[in-house]
Simulated assay, not measured.
Amino acid sequence: MDPLSHLVTLLDPRGRMELRCLFGAAFAAPHDAIGPWRAPFHVVLRGECELWLPESRRSVTLRPGSLLVLPRGAAHTLRASASRAGASARIRTQPGELVDIKTNVRDPARADIEILCGEFEFRGRRRSALLEALPECLVVEFAERPEFGWLQGLLRMMAHEIAHQDAGAAAIVAELSGAVFTLAVRAHLETQPEHAGVLGLMANARLAPALAAMLESPGEPWTVETLAARCHLSRAAFARLFAQHARSGPLELLTSLRMELASRLLAVGEQDTATIGEAVGYRSEAAFNRAFARHAGMTPGRFRRGERAAATAG
């Protein structure tokens, strides 16, 4: 399994489409922060609008063919572009068969702007090396890049199913929504010149073997020396390059990845804590318990009980 697939599997994203927004030229739709374990996404299908991020005081122009993901659930507002701003009519929500419709125009079929809005949920309250490596706001302009035809086709198919609501549409949209997160991260990795964290390691051919080794065999007794050997680098050169691209030390990242895997095993499996601890490199159950408590802020047993309670409530 490649490193991105490993990391997405650890994160276990679940996607769902929630709204079809049909707006006139002037509108403003604020969204509260919902992070850190939920991430909204928006797909602009028609018209131009603007994303406003109040915390960082940034604005981003979104055009037809823009996919926007806010990986850590930041507060934001979708609004009319500055050139088209004006008095905004009241936004109302209409129930729909597959997703609800949000609009501010009398006849939604004549709206200037069409946006699909959804959400990713990451089950389990734990740190994620992948989420931490992503920017506050991830935008993929899929319509402007022929190499992203696969992403455009998937999103257009979702839009078609939502608009026409043929038999099986709900199941199709649910399945496709889960794939959008991985495709967005892959597109970000391919198009941005600089990355940090695990994305910085994936983007660097000299360091990628070390990340792959950690993810493929987290229970191995890795040292800086053995990881450097995987990359055919001296210990000093490896440590220097690793810190530069990952913004952490090799063993610090290794511990984080081990705890991510342990969190997933605790949440979905029946193995006891000693077995899980051994699977992620701890020969002593007590040592694993201490490491997990530092990472998650609770013992493995308490974490597992919380996950099972959440799954039952959901």
Rank of each mutant, 00 (worst) to 15 (best):
A111T: 01
R72G: 04
N104C: 07
A143P: 06
A291R: 06
L67F: 08
P13E: 01
N289D: 10
E136A: 13
A236P: 06
R106Y: 09
T273A: 09
E225M: 10
R16C: 09
L233T: 05
E48S: 15
M214G: 00
N104W: 02
A291Q: 06
L257H: 04
T312E: 12
V185G: 02
G118F: 00
W52Q: 09
E216N: 15
G96F: 04
A80W: 02
V8L: 08
F242E: 00
L227G: 00
R14I: 10
W37H: 14
V43N: 02
L189W: 08
E270W: 10
E220D: 13
T299Y: 05
S234E: 12
G314P: 11
M157R: 13
A25W: 12
E285W: 04
Q152A: 12
C21L: 14
C231P: 02
Q94C: 14
E114S: 09
K102Y: 04
F142Q: 01
A239H: 09
A208Y: 06
I162L: 08
P209Y: 00
S5L: 08
A82D: 14
E141R: 13
L215N: 00
R308C: 11
A25L: 15
H195E: 05
E220T: 08
T182D: 11
C49D: 03
V185I: 10
A210L: 03
S5K: 11
D272H: 10
A111S: 13
G306H: 02
R283L: 11
S177Y: 00
D100A: 15
E141A: 14
G269S: 14
R235G: 08
T223A: 06
E220M: 11
S256N: 08
C49T: 04
A170V: 06
L98D: 03
D100M: 06
R58L: 13
G197T: 04
H42S: 12
A243W: 12
Q192P: 11
V224R: 13
M298C: 12
A236Q: 15
A237I: 09
L265S: 09
L176I: 10
V43W: 05
L233G: 04
A75H: 02
A187R: 01
Q244K: 14
V69H: 00
C137Y: 05
A267S: 15
G297C: 06
E260A: 07
T273K: 08
A80H: 03
H164Y: 13
A129Q: 06
A243N: 14
L261W: 03
G197C: 06
T312N: 09
A287F: 11
A143K: 10
R240S: 13
D272G: 13
V69L: 12
M259R: 03
E55H: 15
A210N: 03
A26D: 04
L215P: 00
